[in-house]
Design a binder for these strands. Structure first.
Length: 566
RNA sequence: GGGCUCGUGGCUUAGCUUGGAUAAAGCACCGGCCUUCUAAGCCGGGGAUCGCGGGUUCGAAUCCCGCCGAGUCCGCCA
């Protein structure tokens, strides 16, 4: 409902600006409407008008407010005042009423918007997901949920890098090192990868074997393809298990080798030769592509004629672009330069520009993560330990529950805490991962929000048991400060989701979730529901119901489960 | 050496795109609150030269320049 409020304030402001002598259209600025702690919505337009018309902003604001006319009917605004240079708007009871009504009515009908393919995680199938991939996966997944919420048709891709050197090393190693069958598949593959890599690094002959393997795979040698596929699929099955546990699903796994053997890479290179500035390396037949504004050329083909990641990724994006209106890639900071090169090369090919969400690295206090060196914390280990810790907390508080129920709550709380932790931080912040900190369930954001939801459920459950109805209610009875604040916060759900979607900033939702839970807790403390007088009880039950819906929706957007009790 | 990002109370962060109302939260710390719907909660308190130095501006955490610190990338890895 906040979005509607914004629209109305905009309308009213525009009308007033027509009446005063200030022509805001002359200015490039908008109406500068924003959230405020001093009002329900505020405008700073007076500042920019003041500058343009050489008047004190206080005078401008007062002048505008004097000409403001708030419609008599169907309005959401009660009044507007000039507070110094600010124009503050306040909502009326109809706004509060309408907000609850909208939430009760259910999902906002969304128009069908563009089709989006969002790629995230895309970890190399050489081992399990570690905490760095976790950040990618969670940022990506929350973005997917945000975009779907506002009506986009989103498909998620996991791009499988099956042609890289790492996989060659794995396949080579698997011939010499036994794969543990008592371990989760991706962890068993990592063991082979780490051991084989040490052998290859120590012996140059082995490296040549690996390269020969890679050439055969690229050429489509049947026996080699079989060996590769077995390893990659094995590893991916483990990765998928981890993702499922995190509540993350991909619609499609796209293998990069498809683009090589299907001829798409070759086509892309031919097309670049026609349209781009390509030259051969002086020493051999490697192909270099000169990109506009780039210092160095991009190598798109090796001296031995085999393909390179960049060329394969170009083919993949070209293929994708024909299947959607927007392409969004969630990449680590190490891929930033590559993403720019990718974008420029795609431009040459006449392919629409992909959008990138770049996140900074997660590192350990001991340094950066590396699967190859075996220096990482796996997502599985983290999930296991955090669920364990969550179970302890449930045990402490709920002796009355049976084991299955406790485990279920611990799982929801543990994974929720993990997801919240990862998504609450802006993607461009570097994270130094602290295991003890990550496991400290008690000071996590997610359980706080889940707890509010459980409290709401608890009230509704009791109300149902006692046969209290909600039916018709009188919204004007909700006049406590905490009630109004809660409703106003509820009204901002769509505003926040819209912003997170248009700015591709998932952490905005995390922040909102916490604030919403806080508002609910204040209401919970201030306003008894079940023991309130009958009419007031009805109204408050409706408010609790609405809070429950929005808390649950918000958690859902974050991919966090909303337990009914905890 | 060059590019990009980050640097906000003891710790973790929001705010920076689009400069404006006392810099906003959580954790930790200190002190209170369970005879009413779950205390994973609520209330109060102390604690910040917004990395440092300049500049633009009536006004800078926010914009510009320089420096320092951290991370990351810089042609045949992905």
């Amino acid at each position: 409902m906040f979005l509607e409020l914004e629209k109305e304030a905009e309308q009213v402001l525009k009308e007033a600006l027509k009446k005063v002598s200030y022509e805001y259209k002359d200015l490039e600025t908008g109406l500068e409407l924003e959230e405020s702690e001093h009002a329900d919505i505020t405008s700073r337009i007076a500042f920019s008008l003041a500058r343009a018309y050489k008047q004190p902003p206080e005078i401008v604001a007062a002048d505008i407010v004097n000409h403001l006319e708030i419609p008599a009917e169907h309005t959401l605004i009660s009044n507007a005042v000039a507070a110094g240079p600010y124009i503050n708007f306040y909502v009326n009871d109809f706004f509060l009423h309408k907000t609850l009504q909208r939430i009760k009515e259910g999902v906002k009908p969304v128009e069908r918007k563009a089709k989006i393919i969002l790629e995230h995680t895309s970890a190399n199938p050489d081992g399990p997901l570690h905490i760095g991939h976790l950040r990618n996966a969670i940022i990506g997944d929350v973005l997917v949920r945000v975009l779907k919420r506002v009506g986009y048709d989103v498909k998620t891709h996991f791009y499988v890098n099956d042609m890289g050197r790492q996989i060659g090393v794995v396949v080579w190693g698997a011939e010499r090192i036994a794969i543990a069958d008592d371990k989760k598949a991706d962890h068993a593959i990592a063991d082979v990868y780490i051991a084989a890599n040490r052998m290859v690094e120590a012996n140059n002959e082995f490296l040549k074997d690996v390269e020969a393997l890679m050439r055969k795979y690229e050429a489509g040698d049947e026996a080699v393809v079989k060996r590769y596929e077995a390893m990659v699929k094995k590893c991916l099955s483990g990765i998928q298990t981890s993702l499922q546990r995190l509540n993350i699903l991909h619609d499609l796994f796209v293998w990069e080798s498809e683009f090589v053997r299907g001829g798409a890479v070759k086509e892309v290179i031919e097309e670049l030769k026609q349209k781009g500035n390509i030259k051969s390396d002086s020493s051999g037949s490697a192909l270099l592509l000169q990109l506009e504004g780039m210092e160095k050329e991009l190598v798109i083909q090796r001296t031995d004629g085999t393909s390179l990641y960049t060329a394969r990724d170009l083919a993949y994006h070209k293929w994708k672009s024909n299947r959607c209106d927007r392409m969004i890639d969630v990449f680590g900071k190490d891929h930033e330069l590559v993403s720019q090169q990718l974008a420029k090369a795609l431009q040459i090919l006449g392919v629409k520009a992909p959008e990138f969400v770049i996140f900074e690295f997660v590192s350990l206090p001991t340094g950066s993560l590396s699967t190859r060196a075996g220096r990482y914390i796996s997502a599985d280990e983290l999930m296991e330990k955090i669920e364990e810790r969550a179970l302890k907390e449930v045990d402490k508080r709920r002796e009355d529950l049976d084991e299955d129920k406790k485990l279920e709550i611990a799982r929801k709380v543990g994974i929720g805490a993990l997801r919240y932790d990862m998504v609450k931080v802006s993607p461009d912040k570097h994270i130094v991962f602290d295991f003890n900190d990550a496991l400290d369930i008690e000071k996590k954001g997610a359980p706080f929000i889940q707890y509010s939801h459980a409290r709401a459920c608890s009230i509704l459950r009791a109300a149902k048991e006692q046969g209290f109805s909600m039916g018709d209610y009188e919204p004007t009875l909700l006049k406590e400060k905490s009630e109004k604040e809660l409703i106003k916060k509820l009204s901002k759900f769509w505003y926040i989701v819209e912003r997170a979607s248009s700015e591709l900033k998932p952490h905005l939702v995390a922040k909102y979730a916490r604030e919403l839970a806080e508002c609910f807790n204040l209401f919970y403390k201030d306003c008894p529901v079940l023991n309130a007088e009958s009419e007031l009880r009805k109204a408050r039950l409706v408010l609790v119901e609405c809070a429950k819906i929005v808390l649950s929706d918000t958690l859902n957007v974050l991919g966090i489960e909303a337990p009914e009790e905890m």
